[in-house]
Simulated assay, not measured.
Amino acid sequence: MPARPTVRRSLLVTVGALAAVGLTAAGCGSDSLSGGSGSSSSTTSAAPSGSADASLKAMLPQSVQDSGVLRVGTNAEYAPNEFLEGTTIKGMDIDIMNAVGAKLGVKVEYSNASFDSLITGVTGNRYDAAISSFTINAKRLEAVNMVQYYNAGTQWVVAKGNPEGIDPDNACGQAVSVQTGTTQSDDDLPKRQEACKAAGKPEIQVLSFDSQEDATAAVVQGRSKAMLADSPIAAYAVKQTGDKLQLAGDVYDAAPYGIVVPKAETQAAQAISTALGEIAKDGAYEAALTPWGGENGAVTEFPVNPAAS
């Protein structure tokens, strides 16, 4: 899951419930909890199927039970996890959340907003939950509950054939693109910069972009020599650009993604955790991952507030 675009156009779109299969993303795992402005655009999933568990719905806030709607914030800038295709929000996270909503017996209403506004949107009761490739970390757990649902690491991407011979472990002096506000931007690259300085080498030329799409385009266009992003996003970027890019090095620093829930709503967090376990058993979880190539990040347990760094 972080400063991402702060201005959006309002729109109303519909995404399917359960593991809706979309067509074709930010790792959004930043350590920031800062608030952000930014308009939001809402989308509402279809009505849940007959697999709803009434006992789980009863664990949700009374306002959600009464309305039958779970308000979920996301930042649709991080394909294949959450992104806009035309006027429709799609992605792996969206399919997972729709399956959870169906199990809870509620409709899921998405608000597409700036990434750095999502956690404060949850704490401020704008959203009942948020899903947007949020890496679970200790700083976030101070403010909200987080329910683990996936595992992702960091991956580097270079031009096809790696003509510049980029080594992720020795990128000093190279132009490297990244999405602003991600763990890669806020944690990974600063550490690499310090290593470059300590070795007396030139600093990495960091090109920071509000959207992952722009960070990827910089490599395709040759403006940067490499980029780094969450592993599923990097792999998807390579796939979408055909023969223009390739992965470089191994996936590292794997960490869990979490669905964000207000700190006080411990029962709701547990309901989401249980719903995730149930969709894992009935196949909807796997069905949500497979179209996006997300199988390698699947988890078998969905704890609330797991230990985090």
Score class of each variant (00 low, 15 high):
Q184D: 12
S231C: 09
C196L: 02
I204P: 00
K225H: 12
L207D: 12
E213P: 08
P202F: 04
V178M: 03
A195E: 08
C172S: 11
A198R: 07
A215E: 08
L207Y: 09
V220T: 10
K191C: 05
G200R: 02
A217F: 06
S211L: 04
D169A: 12
L207V: 08
D230S: 15
P168G: 05
P202E: 06
S185Q: 06
P168L: 02
L189E: 00
D188P: 06
E203Y: 06
C196P: 03
N170A: 15
A215Y: 08
A198I: 09
P168C: 06
D187T: 15
K197E: 12
S208H: 00
Q221H: 12
C196M: 03
G222K: 00
V206R: 09
Q212F: 14
A171M: 11
A229Y: 01
P202R: 02
E213M: 09
I204E: 00
G222I: 00
L207I: 11
R192W: 10
D214W: 08
S177M: 12
T183M: 08
V219R: 11
E213L: 08
D186K: 14
D186R: 14
R223N: 03
G181K: 09
L189V: 05
G222V: 00
I166T: 14
Q193S: 02
D188R: 07
A198N: 06
T216I: 15
V206C: 04
V220D: 08
C172K: 01
G200D: 05
A215D: 09
R223W: 01
V220M: 08
